[in-house]
Computed example of a mutant assay.
Amino acid sequence: MDELTQVRDWDPGTEGLSDRARAAARARLETAVAEESRGRTARTGGLNRRLVLRTALAGAVAAGAGVTVVVTRDGAPHRTAQLHTVSAAEVLRRAADRSRTANRDLPVPRDDQYFYTRTYVVQTYLKGGRTRTWTDESWMSVDGSKPSLRQENGKIHHDPPLGKHEVRWPPTVYSKLLRMPTDPDKLLNQFRLGMKSSLLNDTQAFFEGCMLLEGPRVLPPALQAAAFEALSKLPRIRLDYHDATVAGRGAVGVSHPKAAFTFLFDRKTYDYLGLRTKGSSAKKVNGEWKQVNYYWRTTTLEDIQVVDRIGQHH
């Protein structure tokens, strides 16, 4: 799995990202927002994957295309005269209600276990319309104390245990997740890093929520619901309708105008289906790095299990 975690201080007593690294991450966001406002595409960069695994998405913060969608009461696009307008905030609130029973069949993971995940990926290039599909399987150490096996874009990566001063953020250890607030207002405040609402801080909050919900981790149902409700309070969130189906299910997306990723939900049940991300590859042209080969990537978590060893599926 890619774009999973970042180290950052969340509350007293929890190890996190240093002030220097946090300032650097915030500077990346500021640069992306500023360059987007001038109509330029920000050049992405990369931090150490083991230390800041979620940085791939941070480098992708940019304007996300989207439209407002009107859906019928049965969840279908507007094809009849009987219409019902659903806002982005309402979709997130309904997803919160739906998620309160999510993953209740999964055991609480022990620190010495692994998360097994199977993820279906669809990548469509904007120019040429080429589409690639593949399935990634990964085994990630719950507390990071053991080696992990991660499949990304079909390629196998063997990740060593986390170093002495490395921690994952958001956490994957269940006891740490239980200490996170389930009050939506308090959680939103932490998503904003304790700062007031602004375009930059709200983009940061949307990004924080995205990383918490992406996984792989087993979230306490109350926390997952609180995350959706917290994000529903953000101004500027909107509905996207680029993907008519996700894994055969009709989907509607919720995005932020300065973020290149979108939450995808079932149009009828409001089950959380996965993420769509706008990405690109970098190429050196006339001595300067340019972003080329833009694409939409949709990732759908098909299965997650708590297992005892690498290679085990159930």
Results as ranks from 00 to 15, higher is better:
194 G>V: 03
194 G>R: 06
195 M>E: 14
197 S>W: 00
198 S>Y: 05
198 S>F: 08
199 L>R: 15
200 L>K: 02
201 N>A: 11
201 N>D: 08
202 D>I: 05
202 D>K: 07
203 T>A: 12
203 T>V: 11
204 Q>G: 13
204 Q>P: 10
207 F>E: 13
209 G>V: 05
209 G>F: 04
210 C>F: 10
210 C>S: 13
211 M>K: 05
212 L>K: 01
212 L>G: 03
213 L>P: 01
213 L>M: 00
213 L>E: 01
214 E>I: 07
215 G>V: 06
215 G>D: 08
216 P>T: 04
216 P>F: 06
217 R>C: 02
218 V>F: 11
218 V>H: 14
219 L>S: 01
221 P>H: 03
221 P>Y: 07
221 P>Q: 07
222 A>H: 03
223 L>H: 04
224 Q>S: 10
224 Q>A: 15
225 A>Y: 12
226 A>F: 07
226 A>N: 08
227 A>D: 11
227 A>F: 11
228 F>C: 09
228 F>H: 11
229 E>D: 10
229 E>K: 04
230 A>R: 13
231 L>T: 10
231 L>P: 06
231 L>G: 06
232 S>V: 06
233 K>Y: 07
233 K>P: 11
235 P>E: 01
235 P>R: 02
236 R>W: 05
236 R>V: 06
236 R>P: 05
237 I>G: 02
238 R>E: 09
239 L>T: 02
239 L>W: 00
239 L>N: 03
242 H>Y: 14
242 H>P: 03
242 H>V: 12
242 H>D: 11
242 H>C: 07
243 D>T: 09
244 A>Q: 15
244 A>L: 14
245 T>P: 08
247 A>V: 12
247 A>I: 13
247 A>P: 06
248 G>P: 11
248 G>V: 03
248 G>L: 06
249 R>P: 05
250 G>M: 15
250 G>A: 14
